[in-house]
Nucleic acid binder design. Sequence first.
DNA 1: GCAAAATATGCGGGTTCCCGCAAGACAAGA
DNA 2: TCTTGTCTTGCGGGAACCCGCATATTTTGC
Lengths: 238, 238
Amino acid sequence: MRVLIIEDDPLHRSYLHEAVRAALPECDTVLEAENGHAGEVQARQSRAEHVVMDLQMSERNGIEAARTIWRERPDTKILFWSNYSDEAYVRGVARIVPEGATYGYVLKSTSDERLKLALRGVFMESQCVIDREVRGIQQKSLGNAHGLSDAEYEILVDVALGLTDKAISQRKRLSLRSVQNRLQQLYEKLDVYEVPGDGPEGWYNLRMRAVAVALLRKVLNASALERAERELRNSGGN
Amino acid sequence: MRVLIIEDDPLHRSYLHEAVRAALPECDTVLEAENGHAGEVQARQSRAEHVVMDLQMSERNGIEAARTIWRERPDTKILFWSNYSDEAYVRGVARIVPEGATYGYVLKSTSDERLKLALRGVFMESQCVIDREVRGIQQKSLGNAHGLSDAEYEILVDVALGLTDKAISQRKRLSLRSVQNRLQQLYEKLDVYEVPGDGPEGWYNLRMRAVAVALLRKVLNASALERAERELRNSGGN
DNA sequence: GCAAAATATGCGGGTTCCCGCAAGACAAGA
DNA sequence: TCTTGTCTTGCGGGAACCCGCATATTTTGC
């Protein structure tokens, strides 16, 4: 059994190496890669079926790497090991996990013990192991009490990229008014109307404020934006 | 001589501890704190004059902590040790370093050797030690070839918070038109007019696009936004 | 299959944004 | 002093945004 570690911080990488050795005596080789790009290559060459990786790496982030790895071999078992449980990351992962794949998502702040359990659970028992905190975000995100629907999320991203209503309507093949409708839903969900202190109404530019709130709440984050920007440029705008 | 370490990742914390021990044999006690808040308290109690800290911690980030530490004892020597050289962080540090204070800014990716040099340089020799990469950002940020002036930066932040032109004009005691002027400067500096691919003019909502570009270029980042948001709420909006 | 609910579209108008044009305010320097 | 450059302010208009109201179209639940 071989395990591939994809993690750009050398300290964390060696810590993971150690943890894998300790938790999985049946593992004979541990491979390492120091960014998403190298990780994809390693995964392809080594045909490793067990991967543990960080999200948020500089060269190429974990979500992208995981997507290409899963595209090539959907039965790969991946354990995500991340600093954050931003809704943007959780949503990002949820978007790319293929039907029936087994994966895990634990925070770097969890104990050694829980990390080891996750390693065994995902790699040996094919369980999906997801930290409680992350699970909480997942629930809130999907059970759309405060969470956004997919449609709303996509509008949010397009707006955050700086597209106009018209541009969005063309990209998404919608009428102008429909785009604006979705925007209004977004404004309500994100509570954009509240006023800071005593000021009169009209303190906020709703469009901008919605994005600001999304960023503050970590519904959106920088890496999600980067991904969207790259897609936008590739698709030539439509 | 005592050194205080403020860093929320336990691995990195113990690594730092080790590095301090190795680089500074004249140091007799090493204190540790696991977030900005605890760090402030420790600094106050222990009267430590040498601090090495991470930026970007969860509880209270490094910039805030450093500001209060320096406010209480401006002669404290602080070495920032960060993962990123985002312009937003560099600018944030530059804004709070008091006149004549000695500090350093090195990236976590630097070698052990350079870290030790920085420790000795800042704490023993009272030199300012700043990594080349960081220095590069600093130059670009201040020498306003592509960088933003302070005025433009402040406008950028207000816009990013979602304030309207009118709201900004009141906060900043400016006329509406002046705010819009500064916005236009911003739009030019951030190259907001470029068109993705083949689309017609008018793909972009300039206001939003400016913020998106700033985020992508790391001129702005989430933690700067959070800080600004907190200030906004405290000041009651004006 | 049908009613109810959610979603998509069109129209119209009030507001804000974006910006060209031009005139005052202020500081630095020849 | 007069010029030059930077910053500020006002005016006006075209475009984009925000949204209430009314009408299709699609989805959902029974």
